[in-house]
Design a protein around this nucleic acid. Structure first.
Lengths: 91, 91
DNA sequence: GTTCCCATGATCAAGATCGATATCGCGAAT
DNA sequence: ATTCGCGATATCGATCTTGATCATGGGAAC
């Protein structure tokens, strides 16, 4: 599923054009990006929670040279699946 | 940021009611949930990728009883942040 | 606006999994 | 059709994962 698929789902359920649907998707993702970049957590019950969290990790490895590389602390976004997505049966 | 905040952002940018905005948010999250439950990956360039993946884990521990608990293989949703969310500066 | 209900966070340990890097091929997005 | 983000890959330390229970607050009903 990619952006277009989501937009299609939207325009099928609402009386809007695909262009508008795409606008909406972009709008939402942009707002969410802003929030996450602003270190704000996003919680949508039933779906999941996006939580920006500091990462200190340690060191990785440069595949080319094989040498170790220090991984700066930085920050990562953790997505914790909500109840509706938990307990998924293994197919 | 919670569902209402997202809906507000939507209604501020588009000529729609808050009720409609909420509908849209629910619609999107529901469709995404369906896709994920259907073992489908969701990719939105720049934002991130939701990827259902099998988990085999091993065993955890029940805090109450202190006894080990077998962690069933199940499935988890991994969210990999896109380029726009990577390289977040540490504040 | 106000209230009620139930999803979520925190907590334990230990083992599975992730993340960062560089390059290229593929495919998402325009 | 063009552009440019993403997957795959290797290593290994940091981080996530599960279950039970209470407190908190998301979010929906009134």
């Amino acid at each position: 599923m990619i952006k277009i698929d989501i937009a299609n789902a939207l325009m099928q359920a609402l009386p809007i054009s695909k262009a508008t649907a795409l606008q909406i998707v972009d709008l939402l993702t942009n707002r969410m990006k802003q929030a996450l970049l602003d270190d704000e957590r996003i919680e949508i019950r039933g779906f999941g929670v996006f939580e920006p969290r500091p990462r200190k990790s340690g060191q990785g490895r440069n595949i080319k040279t094989g040498q170790r590389v220090d991984i700066p602390k930085g920050r990562s976004i953790r997505f914790k699946q909500g109840k509706d997505l938990r307990g998924i049966e293994v197919k």
